[in-house]
Simulated scan of single mutants.
Amino acid sequence: MDDIPLIFDPVTGHYHRITRAGEALLGYLDGTRTRDDLVAHFSRSARVDQVRAEAFSRQLDTFLAGLEHGGLLEGTERADQGTGTGPGGKRFRTSMLMPRVVLTRSLPTVLEPVARVLRALPARLVVVLVTLGAATGYAFGFHTLFTATPGLQDLAGPTFIIATGVMLLIVLAHESAHAIVAQYLKVPIRGLGVALLFYFMPVAYVDRTDAYRVRGRGGRVLLAMAGVLSDGWVCGLVGLAALNSSGLAQHTATYLLGMQMFLLVVNLNPLMPSDGYTALEAAAGLTNMRGRAFTLLGHAVRRQPLPEHLARFGTGARRWHMAYALASVAYGCFLAYAVFHTIPVTVDLALSMVGR
């Protein structure tokens, strides 16, 4: 990734970032050398003195301990190994406060014909046209929502239920857009499923963990934003439907435009594991910023020593990650509070639909 070496563990499906020096050292971990053999070998090769040899010995111990902690050395095992976290693991798992259920792993096979056609087109032209179309769609759809549709108090009947059903199809198209771009980049997704964000908000997702294999940042940013771009085109079409219809169809389209505006805000929110967060992380060349932030916060709350890769963080980086973790937790609490207080409104809306 960005010419940064990564170790891929086929058992868990996890990626582990390492340094160039670590990459060079991996070739010597072939089962024929002990730790002391490695120290002696590199000390002789570099012709270093005793002090430098001892420094290398400490660095080697740290590197081997990291590999062992990750379950990457033969005979070792991760704490979460065997829980179905790998590409072919169980259909249900939890991670980052998100229980997940995998619905299908067959999308790569279905989408390859589409990806093959797209690969034959000029990539830059396709990206420009799709982006311009999405921006135009959002502008037109939301302008229509605020200027040419009835108010919420005027919407009645089963329109909300119909709009919710259509919205499920739009979300499926959103996730399929991620999958198409992944397939185009020859990094097939691992699965399509449903997750419960913070254990209470249902969201659809595609597992695009293998996007780490994409070397350029531009491809990873496009992969992250594919769903948002797809929604823009749909938003424009829904706006056209709302502008050129009346009655039940117009009311349903109005609800859909409101839902899409909410979905856009959620998808671009950097305080959640959203498409916007993923795109920012990819553009900045960061790796697992959110996971590191929550690890720092967890160790601080429990007053535990930090793992080696986080202990090396400078003061500024540590403060930034802690601030991000605290802001994300605060936002999650606010979101839960808001959802709880919208329950009466939702119940009243449901009752109004059945005439009560």
Rank of each mutant, 00 (worst) to 15 (best):
H41I: 07
G236V: 11
L248H: 08
F140Y: 15
L256K: 01
A325M: 08
S230I: 00
N267Y: 07
P307W: 01
V110S: 07
L132R: 05
R47F: 05
F334K: 02
L229M: 12
V102Q: 03
L6V: 14
A226V: 07
D37R: 09
R105Y: 08
R33Y: 04
D9I: 04
R58Q: 09
T131P: 03
L271W: 14
L129W: 09
P270C: 07
L257T: 02
G88W: 13
A284I: 04
Y331P: 10
D36V: 12
A350Y: 12
S352N: 11
V39C: 07
H251I: 01
T346Y: 08
A336H: 06
L349E: 13
F200Q: 12
R58M: 07
L243D: 03
V221N: 03
F56M: 10
P113E: 10
L121E: 12
Q50E: 14
F42G: 00
V238N: 07
V266T: 11
M272L: 15
T76F: 11
G151S: 15
R33L: 09
L129P: 05
M322L: 15
H321L: 09
G165H: 01
P113L: 13
G31Q: 12
R292I: 02
P99M: 03
G332D: 06
Y331V: 11
T209G: 06
G218W: 13
Y138D: 03
L222R: 02
L192E: 00
R220G: 07
A139H: 07
I7M: 06
A40F: 02
M96Y: 11
A293N: 06
R35M: 10
G314F: 01
L26S: 12
T85C: 07
A323P: 04
V11H: 02
E77W: 06
A293L: 06
L152C: 02
Y15D: 13
H251N: 09
V114I: 15
S352D: 13
V130I: 11
G239H: 15
A182V: 01
A134H: 06
L155F: 00
G232I: 04
F142A: 01
A311G: 12
L351I: 03
V238F: 10
L257F: 02
L192N: 00
V39N: 04
D207V: 04
M322Y: 14
L306A: 09
G285S: 04
L351N: 07
D61E: 15
R208E: 05
L263R: 01
T209S: 15
H41Q: 13
L263N: 06
L152H: 01
G66Y: 04
T12H: 05
W233F: 09
A195L: 15
M353N: 03
V171Y: 01
Y337P: 00
E112Q: 15
T32A: 15
V11G: 05
V130T: 14
V234R: 07
L64Y: 03
S106R: 05
H321R: 13
H174K: 04
G157D: 03
V110C: 05
S106Q: 08
D30L: 13
M201S: 07
T12R: 05
H309F: 14
I343C: 08
Y255K: 03
F8W: 12
L103K: 01
G165A: 15
V347W: 06
G191S: 09
Q59T: 06
A40E: 13
R319Q: 14
P87E: 12
V39L: 10
V128K: 00
F294L: 13
V301K: 11
